[in-house]
Simulated assay, not measured.
Amino acid sequence: MTAGAGWDVAVIGAGIIGAACAWRLAERGLKVVVLEQGSPAGGSTGKSAAGVRAQFTSETNILLSKHSIEEYAAMPESGYHPGGYLLLVPEAQWPAHQAGVELQHRLGVPTEQLTPEDAQVHAEFLPDGLGGCTFCGTDGHVDAHGLTMAYVNRAREAGARFLLDTPVTGIRRDGEVWQLSTPAGRVEAPLLVNASGAWSGEVGALAGLEIPVQPARRMVFTTGPITLARPLPMIFDLASGVWLRSEGERIILGRADPADVGWREGMEWAWLEPTLEAAMTRFPWLEAASLDRRASWWGYYEVTPDHQAIVGRLPGADGWLNACGFSGHGVMQAAAIARVIAQEALGEAPFIDLSPLRYERFKQVPNGLTDIQV
């Protein structure tokens, strides 16, 4: 089978990024085919904690999240829940964080600055070492699987075709088109969107390209039912890296292990003790909670050297567009990313400045992390 005749764009990956891109490309009149090695949202998307926030410190990330959250709020299928994000900020980081809040306000994000004492209205925690807290009530979480399927359905209605259980096994540029080999035959298109999540580096390697994305395993621990005075918003303690929020009658929580990179599978239960130890230092009431091992899960982040996404055309590779490396921000930015990818594909100026996320930055001296990582 040759599924290539007449395609304008081949999207690799049907997670939330690939599905949203497929819709926005198809609605602009392009003939789109999506190749997915499994099922929609079957990779990182479906294993996400599905948080969405606009509390970033760079304009590009703020706008990508702000516009995405606005789109999710208008989609009944998204399951958007504006429960808020509460950030607990150490003293040393507080001045820079306040500057970030000023930028958020200029861009229309309603973030509040709170003292640690005032922030207790959202959750009980020990304020030791904190310079302040911020809370944004339009942040929250979504149903990542339901949202992805909504994009799949919209893309199909706009004419996109999804080839599921169809891994890409080879990629080469032949004249004006990309040729993608699959077990079902060859697919050809002049434009290719790499939306392969944690597999994006390997997809690039199939074409002889270096895309600096690697998988990083993340654990999500789930408590048993616990009685709280109020549901918890998503809380992120910047000092320890611990995050947690309510999930019905339970709490889900996690903490990134920077050493846990590569294709490692399964729950790493040895990471539970250091996660709980850090969490209970800030939230001592967690000691009364039980753990539900069966309800806990793991998934992959797709991380880059600076923990920022890679978005837009790849220099030196005609027709290759990246939408990958989101480092935990994919669900919260997918809607806006899809719009800018469609604009890039059509040769239009993106409505959000992509320069901080373009591939070319890796040719420059790195500045270190520019935004908090959850």
Rank of each mutant, 00 (worst) to 15 (best):
A5R: 07
D8W: 02
G13S: 09
C21W: 09
V33I: 11
Q37S: 10
A41Y: 06
G51R: 15
E59Q: 12
I62R: 14
A73Q: 05
A74L: 14
M75G: 00
G83V: 04
G83K: 08
Y85R: 08
V89P: 13
P90M: 08
A96C: 02
H105A: 11
R106P: 04
V109E: 03
T111D: 00
Q120R: 10
H141D: 11
L147M: 06
M149W: 15
A150P: 03
V152S: 11
A158L: 10
A160T: 04
D165P: 00
T166W: 06
T169L: 12
P183D: 13
V187R: 09
A189K: 04
A207G: 08
A207F: 12
P215K: 10
A216Y: 05
T222R: 12
T222A: 13
T222W: 01
T222C: 13
P225V: 01
P231D: 08
L232E: 00
L232P: 03
W243D: 02
L244E: 00
R245K: 15
R245N: 10
G254I: 07
R255G: 00
D257Y: 13
M267H: 15
T275M: 11
E277H: 12
A278C: 05
R282P: 03
F283C: 04
W285I: 08
A288N: 15
A288D: 14
R294L: 00
W297S: 13
H307V: 06
A317C: 02
W320D: 02
V331M: 06
M332H: 00
V340M: 01
Q343K: 01
G347F: 05
D353N: 14
L354A: 04
N367C: 12
V374E: 05
